[in-house]
């Protein structure tokens, strides 16, 4: 990107040596995550009857499964990058989907366009309100974000139950499912395309804009960000709002796929999103986000869940495998920070 100013002269400089492109790739989580994904795809394809795992229909299933997980993953990756947590994203998704579902039921006699715009807007606004609540609690009441969102996890799951009387919202217009959730464009499900577009936008913002730089600066050193004059309180609040909006979009996509809400099915979504982000190379401590790696982490979880079912293994083994992979990913990350690993990987 930038030409060197001069050769390093300080004897204490600890820069890893520059190796070949392949050797440098070896130190990146992204490489390993996608390598594991490739191996899993091959294994599940071989083990599945008639290689159904790699069939077009199943690939579309994988895409559809990853849509909401990717959106929550983007949200948590940005928050982790800024040094914050949000374990209420799943609850946010549930509440947004319930509210959007109620609106779409009320508008069932309207045109598809009206139903989509109305329910999507309501879902986004609901998500933003939840995000604003979390942001204000974290920045104004100075409650640690882990604790604040643990509390809001309960609050907003409860609110979703109150709004829906504890049962899933049904009767969502079939046109919403046929005309959006199950619609394919160039062979891919629309919800997946929506999430991929947002993923690309998130990547661009993180990599090229002041917003992305400030997110990483706040996570890397809040003190440094404060002293550089960044209004970190406002920025963190706004970040929670944006992430809430992403959870709202995820809630909307969820009801378009199944034409019903799935209150019980998303309680663990936040933890799954955190897992995907960390496996992909984002640091829990903040300052480092890998949006490309996040995609790999999301795909990994989806492949495992789907693949185990396809080969006839109960899907709850997925939780065990993802947990083990998470530990390995974090361990490898720690290993990379040592001189030993620098010599091992980047010589």
């Amino acid at each position: 990107m930038i030409a060197s100013v001069a050769a390093p002269q300080d004897p204490e400089s600890r820069l890893p040596a520059r190796g070949s492109f392949f050797r440098r790739m070896l130190v990146h989580n992204v490489f390993w995550v996608f390598a594991v994904n490739t191996i899993l795809i091959i294994v599940f394809t071989i083990l599945s009857r008639n290689n159904t795992f790699f069939s077009p229909d199943n690939i579309r299933n994988l895409m559809a499964d990853s849509a909401t997980a990717l959106l929550l993953g983007i949200a948590i990756a940005f928050l982790l990058g800024a040094g914050e947590f949000d374990i209420s994203l799943g609850a946010n998704l549930i509440l947004s989907s319930v509210v959007a579902g109620k609106v779409s039921v009320a508008l069932q006699n309207q045109e598809l366009f009206v139903i989509v715009i109305s329910s999507l807007s309501v879902a986004i606004v609901t998500g933003m309100i939840v995000g604003l609540f979390n942001g204000l609690v974290v920045t104004h009441l100075r409650v640690n974000s882990l604790i604040a969102t643990l509390a809001s996890l309960g609050i907003f799951t409860g609110l979703a139950d109150i709004v829906s009387n504890g049962t899933d919202v049904t009767g969502i217009p079939q046109t919403l499912q046929d005309g959006f959730g199950l619609l394919r464009v160039v062979g891919m499900p629309v919800p997946f395309l929506v999430s991929i577009v947002l993923w690309v936008i998130a990547w661009l913002f993180l990599k090229y804009t002041r917003f992305g730089l400030h997110v990483l600066a706040m996570g890397s050193s809040r003190t440094a960000a404060d002293r550089a004059g960044l209004k970190t309180g406002n920025k963190i609040t706004r970040l929670f709002v944006v992430c809430g909006a992403l959870a709202g979009v995820a809630g909307f996509l969820d009801i378009t796929r199944f034409a019903a809400t799935n209150i019980a099915g998303h309680t663990q979504d936040s933890l799954a999103a955190i897992t995907a982000a960390v496996i992909g190379g984002s640091l829990l401590a903040g300052g480092v986000v890998s949006i490309v790696g996040l995609l790999g982490g999301v795909i990994l979880a989806v492949i495992l869940a789907n693949g185990l079912i396809v080969i006839g293994v109960p899907s709850y083994y997925q939780l065990v495998v993802v947990g083990v992979i998470l530990i390995i990913a974090v361990w490898l990350d720690q290993l990379k920070k040592t001189e030993k690993s620098i010599k091992m990987f980047a010589r």
Binding site: A3, S4, V5, A7, P8, D10, E12, S13, L15
Partner: peptide, 29 residues
Amino acid sequence: ATRSNEALQRLSITLPSLSVAVQNLSGGQ
């Protein structure tokens, strides 16, 4: 980058690169 290079050169500061993470620099750097 242009302006950073100018500022660094004005003070005769030598660094491996402007794109290197600060955590990979020595204390003096």
